[in-house]
């Protein structure tokens, strides 16, 4: 027993760099040798999938990309899967970006899905309107008069010359919104300035760190489902039956979480043992 207690106490004093190394190893091994752990969609991911499924064919879907390379591992798989799902259901995709890097992320996703996989035509099946600075003011601008804000798309083509932009003047002309968000401005701004005032349905995919912040809007019915971080992306990939980077990362995610939980338990045990020892030494 004393041996275990001493080992726990020693672990509590270990240099944090060893912990970093252990985490690196437990993340790396499942990536090299996948365990194929099962992925089951949660209710909120299923809600996103159902929301897209219930849209009639040829619906006008606005996809807003608010993420950058730093959050690409979490959000990009969602965007790729969402595009796949929408193009499979013959929906028209309009992309706006509230983050400057979002434009390049969207270009990458479109090249992979719209051009390579579905061989779709730019301007007829999808359009990348691009980035506009101004945060929530941009959302307000899209709600009131999209054409005032976007006179040209990301390629410099006049919006009036893009066939699929016909009849699109404001936010209410879209049938659905999906916000791929990694922070501010993002999902919350879309809810506050676009969705709540107009009642256009919306779903979202966010980074894990944002989930707690966005969840109240999902619970209140203001947002139809949420893809919560990498697990959300993996679940969506599973739902559309097209495994990708999200799915392959989930083994590593699960193992890493187990190890972190173990560290937390050991850390707490060490704390309590030390506290008891101190109490005994003081004669309490």
């Amino acid at each position: 027993m004393d041996f275990i207690i001493n080992a726990i106490l020693k672990l509590g004093k270990v240099d944090r760099r060893w912990i970093f190394l252990v985490i690196a190893i437990v993340v790396l091994i499942p990536l090299l040798y996948p365990l194929a752990l099962p992925i089951r969609p949660t209710a909120t991911s299923q809600q996103v999938y159902d929301a897209v499924e219930t849209l009639p064919k040829g619906s006008k879907v606005l996809l807003s990309c608010e993420y950058s390379p730093s959050t690409k591992p979490e959000i990009h798989p969602m965007v790729v899967s969402f595009l796949r799902h929408c193009f499979k259901n013959k929906h028209k995709i309009y992309i706006t970006c509230l983050w400057p890097d979002g434009q390049f992320m969207a270009e990458e996703a479109l090249a992979e899905v719209a051009e390579k996989e579905f061989d779709l035509i730019y301007g007829e099946d999808y359009v990348l309107l691009g980035f506009r600075p101004g945060n929530e003011a941009v959302v307000k601008g899209i709600v009131s008069d999209l054409r005032k804000l976007y006179t040209i798309d990301s390629r410099g083509t006049k919006v009036t010359e893009i066939p699929m932009m016909e009849g699109i003047n404001r936010f209410e002309d879209f049938d659905f919104l999906f916000s791929a968000s990694a922070g501010y401005p993002g999902t919350i701004e879309w809810v506050q300035y676009a969705v709540d005032p107009t009642d256009v349905p919306m779903s979202t995919g966010t980074t894990s760190i944002q989930v707690n912040e966005v969840m109240p809007y999902v619970q209140a019915g203001q947002v139809q489902g949420i893809l919560a971080g990498m697990p959300g992306a993996a679940e969506y990939e599973n739902l559309i039956d097209h495994p990708g980077i999200g799915t392959s990362g989930m083994d590593a995610q699960s193992v890493a979480h187990l190890v972190i939980v173990l560290f937390i338990i050991l850390g707490n045990l060490g704390y309590f043992i030390e506290r008891n020892k101190e109490k005994k030494n003081r004669g309490y």
Binding site: L31, E74, I209, G249, A252, Q253
Partner: peptide
Amino acid sequence: ASFGFAVMGRISLLIGRFVELI
């Protein structure tokens, strides 16, 4: 819950970098 999600997010980013490194 926020802490749990934060850990999950950081591990996801680490996975993203490792995938590229591999």
